[in-house]
Amino acid sequence: MSILEIRDLFVSVEDKMILKGVNLTVKGGESHAIMGPNGTGKSTLASVVMGHPKYKIESGSILLDGTDIAELAVDERSRLGLFLAMQAPIEVPGVTNFDFVKTAVQAHMPQDKKLRIGKFILDFEEAAKDLQMGTGLAHRYLNEGFSGGEKKRNEILQMKLIKPSIAFLDEIDSGLDVDALRIVGENVTKMKSNALGMVLITHYQRLLDYIIPDYVHIMIKGEIVKTGGTELIAKIDAEGYDWLKSELGITELEETKRPVSLGTCATKVPAR
């Protein structure tokens, strides 16, 4: 069981401070949801934990099982058990999905162990089936020409096979239709175990209908301003983030309006 501890983290990009003292502890077996308006640093937090070179840690620390990982390269963090399902997965032409996932899984194995290819093929096909990705997936080029929904499902497929101990899912629900959302939700829920700690970053309640979080955090202007249980989700869905203003004495929010529901997406009818 892994523990990720983020302590008083300040992060800047191009001299602009994005995270202003974030504290968060995620343990194996827990699911955390981070909600909040656009541009408040949710995705930044996920990228910083994974080690994206664009962001600069000004102060604070990120500890994985007690070890500070701030100086580690992206791939080292991955091999220690961190995973980030990305908001916009990258296309890599000419590289087959199968080769890529195989290399990734191999990278996570101890040096003296070899991947059993036969078993891996079966695992891959099963994961592809669970996510309803179609039979040709293995030979398609990594994310190239994938629909938005396919890209997101492909992230979950990688997560299933790599088996991380701490995973950030950054807006895994955006661009998904009702069916895809259900498929992703079910698959992620199935992965829940004491061996996996999860952080779900989302704007909307709809994902959290499928994956019930243990903790809900609200992030505004680079800080986690409120932590609670699922009751927070319903409140945000009904009232947006306005109510936090008065409660927390914030005078200005980047996004004061309630999240806009996109007609074609899996939106829940707002509570009246």
Partner: peptide, 9 residues
């Protein structure tokens, strides 16, 4: 970043 986040050097 994408490939390395999956453990590739």
């Amino acid at each position: 970043f994408y490939l390395m986040s999956r453990g590739l050097t």
